[in-house]
Simulated assay, not measured.
Amino acid sequence: MVKQAGARPGASGPGTPATVALVAAGIPFTAHTYAHDPATTNYGLEAAHALGLDPDRVFKTLLAEADGRLVVGIVPVTGMLDLKSLAAAVGAKRAVMADPSVAERKTGYVVGGISPIGQKAALPTVLDETAALWETVYVSGGRRGFDIELAPDDLLRVTSGQLADIAR
């Protein structure tokens, strides 16, 4: 179920754009795979349960449109993205959830496997401040059934993200 990070993506779980980006940036991470149930639609809670984790430590990646531009919000799977707070964090007046097909096309990942790391284009990224409570957090590794564990500061560094209160 758990594989330790290695020097190359193939040694650390499925090779995805997320693992490639982390290896290229020299950021330490641990890859965790689990059997994804195709009937499940709450991917983050599924990961927390399958990996035996506190769900507050597992984060989901959501895309929103803030004043017409795509932005990434990363919040605990137990919460919801506060669109007003996300908009304020990126200097926008208003934010709405992005259409799932747009999210898939712009990130290169499928819904339920969208990683904040290694997306097709660099998007403004905001990580909920509760991530700072943990030594490491879990985010999608770029496929359903595959999560990456890394330090919140490293997640911010690899995504050029910022920390803000964006969950409710």
Rank of each mutant, 00 (worst) to 15 (best):
L22P: 01
A103S: 14
V111Y: 00
A87Q: 07
V110S: 11
T40M: 10
K120H: 12
D82Q: 10
N42T: 04
T125W: 04
A39Q: 14
H36D: 05
G15S: 15
I114T: 04
L62S: 00
T78D: 00
L45C: 09
T30V: 09
K120E: 07
R168V: 04
V75E: 02
V137A: 07
M97L: 15
V158F: 07
I148Q: 09
T33Q: 15
T40W: 00
G52I: 04
T78N: 05
H36I: 00
P14E: 13
A98S: 06
A47F: 02
I166L: 04
A64Q: 12
A47V: 03
R69V: 15
P17H: 05
L83N: 12
V23Y: 14
M80H: 12
I117C: 02
V158A: 10
A88I: 00
D82N: 13
D56N: 10
I27E: 06
D99K: 12
N42G: 06
S101F: 01
S140V: 01
S12G: 09
E46Y: 08
D37L: 06
V102W: 07
V111R: 15
E129Y: 08
V126A: 02
P55Q: 07
V20N: 12
A92S: 15
T78E: 01
L123E: 00
A48E: 03
I166A: 08
A95C: 09
D67L: 06
Q119N: 05
D154F: 06
A24M: 00
